[in-house]
Design a protein around this nucleic acid. Structure first.
Lengths: 239, 239
DNA sequence: GCAAAAGTGTTTCTCATACACCCATGA
DNA sequence: TCATGGGTGTATGAGAAACACTTTTGC
């Protein structure tokens, strides 16, 4: 059992699948591609592809992220491994083990499918239906993970451009959690956490056309939130 | 790139590696096996093995858990996927992608290596040194994950036998976190969380030979802890 | 002036912390 | 009776929630 004959077993293919999230008009969107061939031809799926012989799953995920979004520089984007899906029958053609990742984008340029012929499109999270393979489950797992990490990490700034207002940061939480938050309390909480955000002195921006211009902030250096910013009593939350 | 020629790529081997934790005499222990062959012959490593063509990584992990611990029934044990390690050079012989798992055991029977010739041994977490491959990192990641999940899930009961005292449950937290906790407050916190533990009426057990016998509890049905039981200010905790 | 959005102040209540104290048992 | 571990009570303070209120802008 500890032997290493390369061809002793049916070969495994190793792929990456990406749940790429962004915020558009205050709503959570996810990047989907339309499948061009069987199985699941014509259905939507998460972007992804094979891990090449000389790269890690992380490298493959970042490469695919660049190809599918059409962005030239994806080096600064948040990319995080979720878990690996390995049910023997998850792909009807052969044994495919897939390492799933979540990626967060500040802005959402219209996706153009990269080099693949596949069509890529930003879709509101709420209207996603019937993804190919087990991608529906992967996407749900990804959203749950991102929602959970908003509670105890500074992850929310990964959804924001380099300079952002506290209102925009709050929109991230509200979009991912699907709940409204009290603005004064949110503000106090964020500013009271050292290293979460740092003020850009003097800078301000008008957000809704009207109203007082909001002060601008940059992402801070902290990674964790102490104490956490808990969701408003979701009662029975999965572990 | 979207083709599915089974042999178009150098084959990947897919393995599972297990970080199996238990508590012995109030201290966190890990199950290690001694490697019998190159590379890393004679060094200690995490137990693990190949994923077979007809099983998922989860199935493979549970099978290995039974083989390595020598336990006949591992169906009720807590087993949790951590992440996948896929650096191209992590195994010098060929391309091996490994899905890492953490497992928690209530009691620690002396391990007898199962069917493999390899020697298996429980080792205090603090005295683990120089594991083979990237197993040192996997083990560190596993402990961090388990420590974090103690905060906001009921995971701690997975370290305990079917009936346990609150003192034993507290020892789990103290051993994994490496900190002392206030007993009265710990007790209140646990009992105030619905579904964490349920009392066994009338049952009691002497723990240290002396002292008042402690009431017995069973694991409850809840999975998550609301609000969480936070570690005493670890300051800069990784996300 | 009015609507809209940012930002401040204040009150109330919950809960974590710290620590003093009592109870039951074996030696 | 004393040491040991289980279990209870309580004062204090920090922080979260709720909401009233002020400020600055465009129309």
């Amino acid at each position: 059992m500890d032997g290493y004959d390369k061809y002793a077993f049916e070969p495994f293919a190793v792929t990456v699948d990406l749940a790429v999230f962004t915020l558009r008009a205050g709503a959570l969107h996810v990047l989907l591609v339309e499948r061009g061939r069987e199985p699941y031809a014509g259905q939507w799926a998460l972007p992804g592809g094979f891990v090449r012989p000389d790269e890690s799953a992380e490298s493959a995920a970042r490469r695919e992220l660049g190809e599918e979004t059409g962005l030239t520089d994806v080096s600064g984007l948040h990319l995080e491994q979720l878990r690996t899906y390995s049910e023997p029958d998850r792909d009807p053609r052969m044994r495919v083990v897939s390492v799933a990742f979540a990626a967060l984008l500040p802005d959402a340029p219209e996706a153009h499918g990269g080099s693949d012929a596949a069509q890529a499109r930003w879709t509101p999270y709420g209207s996603v239906r019937d993804l190919a393979f087990d991608h529906g489950r992967i996407l749900a797992d990804a959203r749950e993970r991102v929602g959970a990490k908003l509670e105890y990490t500074c992850l929310a700034t990964a959804f924001c451009p380099p300079e952002f207002t506290l209102g925009e940061l709050q929109q991230v939480y509200e979009a991912v959690w699907g709940t409204a938050l009290d603005r004064p309390n949110f503000r106090r909480k964020v500013l009271a956490t050292p290293g979460f955000v740092e003020a850009v002195p003097g800078a301000a921006r008008l957000t809704g056309g009207r109203g007082k211009p909001a002060a601008l902030y940059r992402a801070g250096t902290a990674a964790a939130l102490h104490p956490p910013l808990l969701r408003p009593t979701p009662e029975g939350r999965p572990a």
